[in-house]
Amino acid sequence: MAENFFSPNLLGTNYQTNPDAVNQLLFKNYMANISSHHEKVDEIGSCLTINGYDEERFPLIFSLKYILLNGHWLIDNIHVVFVENESDFSNNAKCPSEYPN
């Protein structure tokens, strides 16, 4: 089912036989509660930033890049940021590529 949600670029060629792939693709399980979200869309893609908390109430940010491929919006890149506190939440949408390496 991964092909319904993730781009071939993100999945790579061996995701079905990679034992770590399941945990990486189920990144959504890290976030227990959503505080806010922001989105930006242009002609080549979309970015979604989600601020929230894990199960232990620690703040974190998901930054997702979506691309339109064959009529479907697919996640093409993921960046998860563990922040110190709620004041570090993003006030706008940021693409994963906008974070420092």
Rank of each mutant, 00 (worst) to 15 (best):
S7M: 05
S7E: 07
L69P: 03
T13H: 13
F82K: 12
C47Y: 02
D54I: 12
L74F: 07
G45S: 08
M31R: 06
L25Y: 08
L64W: 09
N29D: 13
Y30Q: 15
D76K: 01
I44W: 06
G52N: 06
L25R: 04
L10N: 05
G12L: 10
E39S: 11
V83M: 04
L64Q: 06
E86S: 14
T17D: 12
N33V: 11
S90H: 12
L25M: 12
N91M: 10
L48P: 06
E39K: 10
S36F: 00
N51I: 00
L74E: 02
F82E: 14
V22I: 05
P8E: 07
S7F: 04
L64T: 03
F27Q: 01
V83W: 00
G45F: 10
K40S: 07
V83H: 01
P8C: 05
N51G: 00
D76T: 03
L68P: 03
I44L: 10
L26Y: 11
I61D: 04
F27G: 00
L69R: 13
N29K: 11
T49K: 00
F89N: 03
D20M: 11
E56I: 13
D42C: 01
N33F: 06
L25F: 14
Y66R: 09
A32R: 13
E43S: 15
E43H: 14
L60Y: 03
E86C: 03
T13F: 08
R57Y: 09
S87L: 11
F89I: 04
N77M: 05
Y30L: 15
C47H: 05
P8D: 14
K65W: 04
E84C: 09
Y15V: 04
